[in-house]
């Protein structure tokens, strides 16, 4: 498999997907570092396909109401609230 091409454009694109603003010098530094790190991850190409044993069972409980955080407690760490609700930035 060919080396993944990482350039500043790609880092900017991924940062955009992840909703993280980056300064230009951060983009430059990350681009260099990502080349090395992704190159190391290339070693995974040698890993054989391996069957995964799923040792899992479902955990169930009756669907009953129980005590939970009060509205006030749930809102106590929000930077802004309005009428008992979280207030966020504009959606559009």
């Amino acid at each position: 498999m060919s080396d993944p091409a990482v350039d500043p454009e790609e880092v900017r694109h991924v940062a955009d997907l992840a909703r993280v603003d980056l300064a230009d010098d951060e983009i430059e530094r990350f681009t260099e570092q990502f080349v090395d790190i992704l190159d190391a991850f290339e070693a995974l190409d040698d890993v054989p396909e391996t069957e995964r044993e799923a040792d899992l069972s479902n955990v169930m409980r009756p669907d009953e109401t129980r005590e939970s955080l009060s509205q006030e407690e749930a809102l106590q760490n929000a930077s802004d609230t309005e009428e008992g609700q979280f207030k966020g930035p504009k959606v559009s």
Binding site: N77, A78, G88, P89
Partner: peptide, 21 residues
């Protein structure tokens, strides 16, 4: 929004989140 460093209320939500982060 629910907790943590706020990104402010200028611009749209994606800009605000990216700013907070």
């Amino acid at each position: 929004v629910r907790y943590g460093q706020s990104g402010g209320y200028d611009g749209n939500w994606n800009e605000s989140f990216a700013n907070a982060r």
